[in-house]
Computed example of a mutant assay.
Amino acid sequence: MTVALASGGRGHFGWGQDRHLLADLFDAINSNTKATGQWGRGKAPKIPPFPRPQAKAKAKKAGKKAATVAQLYQHFQQRR
C-alpha cells in the first residue's frame, strides 16, 4: 500500500511490473489485430487501450539549478 500511495494513490494498488507488462501485451495484441484484420468497410474499429492508473506529476523545485561537477568538487574541497 505504501508503494501504491507513493506512486499516485490507491488506484496503483496491485500494479506491479507484471500487471503493467500484461496491460502492454493486451494493447499489443489489439494493435496487431487492428493492423492485420480484414475489415468489411475498410476501416478498423476503435479498440480502447487497457485502463491504467495515472501517475501523479512530479513537482519541480522552483529556483534551484543543478550543480555542476566542478561546483560540487569545489564545495567539498573547502575547509570549514
Rank of each mutant, 00 (worst) to 15 (best):
T2R: 05
T2A: 08
V3P: 00
V3E: 05
V3H: 02
A4K: 02
A4L: 04
L5M: 15
L5D: 07
S7R: 15
G8T: 07
G8A: 10
G9C: 09
R10M: 12
R10C: 10
R10K: 11
R10G: 15
R10H: 07
G11V: 03
G11Y: 01
G11N: 13
G11M: 05
G11S: 13
H12N: 09
H12R: 06
F13Q: 13
F13V: 09
F13Y: 14
F13D: 10
G14T: 09
G14A: 06
W15F: 06
W15T: 02
W15E: 04
G16L: 06
G16E: 07
Q17A: 14
Q17D: 08
Q17R: 13
Q17V: 15
D18A: 13
R19I: 01
R19T: 09
R19L: 08
H20W: 15
H20M: 15
L21Y: 02
L21A: 15
L22P: 00
L22F: 05
A23S: 06
D24P: 01
D24V: 03
D24H: 03
D27Q: 06
D27F: 04
A28G: 04
A28N: 08
I29Q: 06
I29M: 12
I29H: 02
I29A: 12
N30I: 02
N30W: 03
N30Q: 12
T33P: 00
T33C: 06
K34I: 06
K34T: 15
K34S: 10
K34L: 13
K34W: 06
A35P: 00
A35D: 11
T36H: 12
T36D: 02
Q38T: 04
Q38A: 09
Q38S: 07
W39M: 09
W39G: 01
G40Y: 02
G40S: 14
R41T: 13
R41M: 11
R41C: 14
K43T: 13
K43M: 13
A44Q: 09
A44C: 05
P45V: 10
P45F: 09
K46I: 14
P48C: 00
P48F: 02
P49Q: 03
F50W: 03
F50R: 00
F50C: 06
P51W: 10
R52W: 01
R52E: 01
Q54T: 15
Q54Y: 00
Q54S: 09
Q54M: 07
Q54F: 00
A55S: 15
K56C: 11
K56H: 08
A57R: 09
A57H: 03
K58E: 12
K58D: 08
K58A: 10
A59Q: 07
A59D: 05
A59K: 13
A59C: 01
K61F: 03
A62L: 05
A62Q: 14
G63A: 06
G63T: 01
K64Y: 05
K65M: 07
K65G: 09
K65V: 10
A66N: 03
T68Y: 02
T68G: 11
V69N: 05
A70W: 02
A70E: 15
A70V: 10
Q71S: 07
Q71C: 01
Q71I: 02
L72Y: 09
L72V: 12
L72I: 12
Y73P: 01
Y73E: 13
Y73L: 08
Y73D: 12
Q74Y: 04
H75G: 05
F76T: 14
F76M: 08
Q77E: 11
Q77H: 11
Q78C: 03
Q78S: 11
Q78T: 14
R79G: 03
R79I: 12
R79A: 06
R79V: 13
R80P: 07
R80G: 07
